[in-house]
Deep mutational scan, measured.
Amino acid sequence: DDLEQFAKQFKQRRIKLGFTQADVGLALGTLYGNVFSQTTICRFEALQLSFKNMCKLKPLLNKWLEEAD
């Protein structure tokens, strides 16, 4: 599944880049005006958010990865 794959890759890249889940949540706030909690990022990576929320977060996290690289 696409979302599952993305969540896995996101977590690996985030760790490799040296960011915590909280860092990502704050960075999203800075970039897009939407601060996300560490818990939200954690749940995303664990696929524990609703499908709708996963779909909403994915493009933001994808963009963040591009910026962070």
Rank of each mutant, 00 (worst) to 15 (best):
F44V: 04
V35W: 11
W64Q: 02
A27R: 14
T40P: 03
G18M: 02
Y32V: 05
F36T: 14
W64A: 03
F10E: 03
K8D: 03
N34F: 05
T40I: 06
L61G: 01
Q9N: 14
T30H: 10
E67Q: 10
L57H: 08
A68K: 06
L31W: 08
K11S: 06
L57R: 03
G25C: 15
I15N: 07
T30E: 10
T20Q: 01
I15F: 09
C55Q: 15
L47A: 08
A7I: 13
K16S: 08
D2N: 15
Q38D: 12
A22F: 09
S37L: 04
N53K: 15
D23T: 01
M54S: 06
F44S: 00
A68S: 12
G33I: 04
T39C: 13
C42H: 13
Q12C: 07
L61Q: 02
P59S: 07
S37Q: 08
Q12Y: 11
F19P: 05
V24E: 00
T40R: 05
Q48R: 07
G25E: 03
F36A: 12
I15Y: 08
K56I: 12
F44E: 00
K63D: 08
Q12L: 10
A27I: 03
S50R: 08
K52N: 12
L60S: 05
N34V: 10
Q38W: 07
T30D: 12
A27K: 14
W64N: 00
Q48F: 02
G29P: 04
N34W: 02
T39Q: 12
P59K: 09
L65M: 10
F10V: 01
D2G: 10
L26H: 15
N53M: 15
F10T: 06
R43W: 01
S37P: 12
F51Y: 09
L47S: 09
V35H: 11
F44A: 00
M54F: 00
Q9C: 07
S50Q: 15
D23M: 02
L31T: 11
K56G: 06
A46K: 15
L28S: 00
G29E: 13
L61F: 01
G25M: 03
T40E: 10
K8W: 07
M54Y: 06
A46M: 15
R43C: 07
A68G: 05
E66A: 05
A68Y: 11
G18N: 13
K63A: 11
R43K: 13
C42W: 08
E66S: 06
F51C: 07
G25W: 00
L28A: 04
R43E: 12
D69E: 10
C42E: 15
N62E: 15
N53E: 14
F19R: 07
L49H: 04
D69I: 05
G29Q: 05
F36G: 05
L26Y: 14
L60R: 06
P59L: 08
Q48H: 05
F19C: 11
K63F: 11
W64S: 03
E45H: 04
F51W: 05
V24I: 02
K56P: 01
L65F: 04
R14W: 00
K11V: 01
I15E: 14
Q21C: 09
L57V: 06
Y32K: 05
Q48V: 00
K11G: 00
Q48G: 09
L3K: 02
I15R: 07
L47N: 15
Q12G: 04
T20A: 05
F19A: 09
K56T: 13
Q21Y: 11
K56M: 11
N53I: 11
A7L: 01
Q38N: 07
D23E: 13
Q38C: 08
G25D: 05
K16M: 09
K16F: 05
K63R: 13
A7T: 12
K16T: 14
K8T: 07
S50D: 12
L65W: 09
Q38M: 06
D2M: 09
T30P: 11
T20P: 04
A46W: 05
Q12S: 11
D69G: 15
L57P: 14
C55I: 13
A46L: 06
L31H: 10
K8M: 12
F19G: 00
L26S: 14
K58E: 00
V35E: 15
K58T: 01
G33M: 02
A46N: 05
S37D: 11
G25H: 03
T39P: 05
G29Y: 12
Q9R: 10
V35L: 07
L65T: 03
T20R: 01
I15A: 03
L61M: 06
T40M: 10
Q12V: 09
D23G: 10
S50M: 00
D69V: 08
D2T: 14
K11Q: 12
N62A: 13
Y32P: 04
K63S: 08
K56R: 14
T20C: 09
C42P: 09
E45W: 02
G29H: 11
I15W: 03
Q21E: 12
K11L: 00
D23Q: 14
K58V: 07
L26D: 13
D2Q: 11
L3S: 01
Q21A: 09
N53C: 09
G25K: 11
L61S: 00
T30A: 14
A22K: 15
L3V: 08
N34H: 12
K56N: 07
L65S: 05
C55L: 11
K58G: 01
G29M: 07
A68N: 11
A46E: 10
A68Q: 05
L26M: 14
E45K: 04
T39I: 11
L28V: 03
A27E: 08
C42G: 13
R14T: 00
D2F: 08
A68H: 08
T40W: 07
G29N: 14
L49P: 04
E66R: 11
E67A: 13
A22L: 06
G18E: 01
L47C: 14
W64C: 03
L65R: 04
C55M: 13
F51K: 15
R13Q: 08
E45A: 06
